[in-house]
């Protein structure tokens, strides 16, 4: 564990040496999230509810989705860009380390410049919770959902990156598996067509990030069991993603040298 901390510290030190503008990146990542939430707020200034969800309730959905996506982006500067490792054969160096390659990729890819979106996601969630007057236990649940939601998006991201072992290029696939689903998670799933809801419950399990547990917490359907559902969902997703990763690692071709 202490090794991991030192590796991450090394990554951050490298970014600082390179002169990455932290304030700029943080503002930028906050700006993009703000723009998206702005659209939701604008809609809600003219219409009180979306599918029965008020603005503070929607803020919980939006905030949790933004938090999970930002945690993924904070940890995966390198993993998200994994096709570069495939195209240039840069993954060789990762495999020469006495560590699980996935862990090395994550440690190399920590980027605090993405924290803007994370802080904003947490802020919007907290604003929604405050407006709804949630009890301390409710805040506790939201904290749990932030963790499980982040783990779920991370699992989807790892699985997407792992397909690079077969497909090499994943930049376009990420639109389908990451961007579009995390955007879809900003709204209640009940508004979607059946096939889309089925997709978000299975192959891209984004419904577990926020919609199912928050709906149960607000008393709209499901009880404690539904609120706990994200825990096994995250564990299973991470396991499957790790399995896909190690299957891909075995067929790595090491081209480009």
């Amino acid at each position: 564990m202490s090794v991991l901390v030192r590796l991450v510290a090394g990554t951050l030190r490298g970014q600082r040496q390179y002169g990455v503008d932290f304030v700029g990146s943080i503002v930028l990542s906050a700006l993009v999230t703000a723009g998206e939430f702005g659209v939701v707020v604008i809609i809600l200034t003219r219409f009180p509810r979306i599918a029965g969800w008020s603005l503070p309730q929607l803020a919980l959905l939006f905030g949790l989705s933004a938090t999970a996506t930002s945690v993924y982006r904070t940890l995966t500067d390198e993993l998200h860009d994994f096709e570069r490792y495939m195209v240039n054969g840069e993954f060789d160096a990762i495999l020469l380390r006495p560590w699980p390659s996935l862990l090395v990729m994550l440690a190399r890819g920590v980027n605090l410049g993405k924290l803007g979106g994370l802080l904003e996601g947490l802020g919007i969630t907290a604003w929604g919770a405050a407006r709804l007057g949630l009890a301390p236990s409710g805040w506790g649940w939201l904290l749990l959902f932030s963790v499980t939601g982040s783990a779920l998006v991370l699992a989807i991201g790892i699985a997407t990156s792992a397909t690079a072992f077969w497909l090499e290029r994943i930049g376009e696939l990420q639109v389908f598996t990451l961007y579009a689903p995390s955007f879809a998670a900003e709204f209640p799933q009940s508004i979607y067509a059946g096939w889309l809801r089925a997709l978000f419950l299975s192959a891209i399990p984004i419904a577990f990030v926020n919609y199912l547990p928050v709906r149960a917490m607000l008393g709209h359907g499901g009880g404690i069991a539904t609120m706990l559902l994200p825990v096994p969902a995250a564990a299973i997703s991470l396991t499957l993603a790790a399995l896909l990763w190690s299957a891909g690692e075995r067929r790595y071709r090491s081209t480009g040298s």
């Binding site: 979306i50 930049g171 696939l173 961007y179 508004i191």
Partner: peptide, 28 residues
Amino acid sequence: QYRWAHMVNNLGSAVFGFVYIAAWRAVL
């Protein structure tokens, strides 16, 4: 060279459209 990858992207972009449409139908 990347037209097939772009087809996957199109599918993802279409999902963005579906989400917006669904949101508006729910709102209106």
